[in-house]
Amino acid sequence: MDFSSLIDQIGEHTANGLTKGAIYALVALGYTLVYGVLRLINFAHSEVFMVGTWAVLGVYTVLGATGGSGVGLVILATALAALAAVVASASTALIVERVAYRPLRKKNAPPLIFLITAIGCSLVLVELFGHVFRVFFGPPFGRALVSIPSLIDTEVWLDLGKTSITNMQIIVVVGAVVMMVALDTFVNKTRLGRGVRAVAQDPDTAALMGVNQDRVIMLVFILGGAMAGVAAILYTMNYDITKFDIGFLIGVKAFTAAVLGGIGNLRGALVGGLLLGVVEVYSSTLFSSNWEDVTAFVVLILVLMFRPTGILGESLGKARA
């Protein structure tokens, strides 16, 4: 137990925790959106994030962007990488929906079949990057950790005495919050968003209003995928790595964050993600980094014991101002 270190550096640890948590929150949105509309835990969502990180690496490689590149190239490469990550992740999510889930829906498959299919999709995607692509294209595909060039140097932007906030931390947290506000506004204020909420509340009645359910489901996968793509660019900018199975632990944590905040609730994903990130960093300081996952799940279990619907509870359909 190292209380003094935690207290002494509380600002620093909180900033680290929020940065971590913002990534969890963005990925958590994908779980929560799909769950809200389909009551399905899309276990392939962790790989939707993973594909996004590889898209970032792909763009940097093609453009030859590295840490020493000029400002113009850095801006271009970052913007293109962000776009590529969003497109790659959203497409992956959409393909999984069209190829795997929709045919099952048409056959009225029971929920367990969806769950197993989701795990299957996750494994297929992992093995594509961990094995199949290596056979065809060679490295960097495969099972090794891959480093991604760090285009922007980490600098201290805010010096508050004991606490110094870096540019990366600000970019990650601000980026994540902006995306969340945009998504929340879309779902609550637009016609299509209202369609999403209608399907989440009552699919049959939504159809009676003229809402095309398949289109709403596709939209939800695209939105969730796009958010995972944003998470991917922010993650790679901050941590400079990827791996074939990088989605696994982040996916599990993001799913935890979604449940913690109240699955099906967009704002719950934000609350759950940030809380989980902070708890993890605090606990790794208090005990050791080996304890961070344990603590995260202990918190989840405690919250669910006293509030089974998560911190904010409510469903996507009901979540509103």
């Binding site: 209202r194 909420r197 209608a198 509340q201 009552d202 049959d204 009645t205 009676l208 469903s315 359909g317 009901k318 509103r320």
Partner: peptide, 11 residues
């Protein structure tokens, strides 16, 4: 107009 409570309760 569906039977019973066929409205969106959360809206």
């Amino acid at each position: 107009a569906p039977e019973g409570r066929g409205i969106f309760p959360g809206m």
